[in-house]
């Protein structure tokens, strides 16, 4: 533990720097000095700047931290639980499940009758979708021991949802379609402080459950049989880990859209930095690393000083996919 203290300090420092960078960049150019003084509570000369920083950029940065950290943590949990280095919320179809939930709500409401739209119906629909897929994947995982099969099944889930979504899209009107497309691009910039606090609460529960499961997560590194022989009650600890994973991946996808590759890539990147499998080290490290990466990706997606915003999903894929390829090529076989 002690030997990693320095690395943690550096990581926290980088997180602060990335946060500053993220807050100070955006479509409206606000001088760094003004941003800083606003953060320390001093009044700004331009009221609009203050509004932009406190009501838009700060909540966006918080969402980025929650989304990046939470998704990465859920990826770590999945890799340990499924004993699979390629597991992640996207690969295993959890994000597809959320998409399906969202698509059914946004585009299928004509079929299901007019649902009452409120802020949270989308969140609930996406969460339910991701939880259902997670349960099915888990049932399948108990049937097949082979890790490759599991991944292929996850991919098939992705295809099935994509198919259903395109059928729904075909029958829905332009406005519904647009809402869904925008959701599926992913965004960390559309959450109010209030929504942020709900997401933060859910992510916090996910973190607490992960921390409680640290011992059984470590035992699961040896495999389920060994974990059992070490006194781990499999059913209970697996359930806890699954709830944590589902809460993290489900709620984040619901609020911020399906964000690819963060959950898969960050645990591997973190293991390059912290050469250990001990979850006591990995859980905080993965969370910090994911938060940093998301803040940076979001800073790029904002296209500083331009009015447009790129879909965050595109940026994370552009960063994440080469990382996975590089890891596979360099290490030959990916270990988790």
């Amino acid at each position: 533990m002690v030997s990693y203290r320095f690395r943690f300090l550096v990581l926290v420092f980088i997180l602060l720097a990335a946060w500053m960078l993220n807050v100070s960049l955006g479509s409206v150019a606000i001088p760094l000095q003004a941003t800083l003084s606003s953060l320390f509570g001093q009044p700004l000369e331009q009221a609009s700047w203050e509004y932009i920083i406190t009501q838009y950029r700060l909540p966006k940065a918080l969402t980025a931290i929650l989304v990046g950290g939470g998704l990465s943590l859920s990826g770590l949990l999945m890799q340990t639980l499924f004993r699979n280095p390629l597991a992640g919320p996207f690969v295993l179809g959890i994000s597809s499940g959320a998409s399906l939930g969202a698509a059914l709500l946004l585009m299928g409401s004509a079929l299901l009758g007019q649902l009452i739209f409120c802020d949270f119906s989308l969140v609930v629909a996406a969460s339910v979708g991701s939880f259902l897929v997670l349960l099915v994947v888990l049932l399948v995982a108990n049937q097949v021991r082979d890790t490759m099969t599991l991944l292929i099944i996850g991919l098939m889930f992705g295809s099935i949802t994509a198919a259903i979504v395109s059928v729904l899209a075909y029958f829905s009107n332009a406005e519904q379609l647009q809402r869904f497309i925008f959701w599926s691009y992913g965004s960390v910039g559309s959450l109010s402080w209030h929504q942020n606090s709900i997401l933060g609460g859910l992510v916090l529960v996910g973190i607490v459950l992960s921390v409680v499961s640290i011992k059984s997560l470590n035992a699961l590194l040896l495999g389920e049989h060994y974990a059992q022989s070490l006194g781990v009650s499999l059913k209970r600890s697996k359930l806890l880990i699954i709830i944590a994973t589902g809460l993290l991946a489900g709620s984040i996808t619901a609020f911020a859209g399906p964000i690819a590759f963060v959950g898969l890539a960050v645990p591997h990147l973190t293991r390059q930095l912290f050469s250990t499998m001990e979850h006591k080290v990995l859980i905080p490290a993965v969370f910090l690393y994911g938060a940093v990466l998301m803040l940076l990706c979001d800073a790029i997606a904002q296209l500083p000083t331009a009015a447009q915003v790129l879909p965050i999903n595109a940026i994370t894929s552009l960063v994440g996919a080469p990382v996975v390829i590089w890891l596979l090529v360099r290490k030959r076989k990916m270990l988790f």
Partner: peptide
């Protein structure tokens, strides 16, 4: 217990 299956991770 020592099983024939290798540990799930060799890392």
């Amino acid at each position: 217990l020592v099983l024939t299956e290798p540990p799930a991770t060799r890392n």
